[in-house]
Amino acid sequence: MTLLTICLMALITFTTRYLFIHPRLPVRLGAKMAKFLSYSAPAVLTAIWVPIIFVQQGQLNVSWQNPYLIAASLSVLAAAKTKSIYFTMFVGLVSFVLSRYLLAL
């Protein structure tokens, strides 16, 4: 049963990725639509990461006791300043581990 479920899930994830690049799908994109879609990467990626920082167990957490918020703030600064993906990840992970550890003391 689980095997069948997994196969059907695979079909779903593939379909959501593939459907709109199928050539025979009758969809034509105008210049306006293309412009609109050009904002999809920052929009979707942001809509994924921001709730991870601010929402925990369904509750809003905007206090400075929130290790996610501390580490994310430093990561945003690091990314804006250096534009380096490795440096940003390093700053983020170190500050996350440290602030979790220190806040738990």
Partner: peptide, 12 residues
Amino acid sequence: FAIAVTFIALVI
């Protein structure tokens, strides 16, 4: 958080 920081590094 590892996912979040990766996307921060890509988006910002």
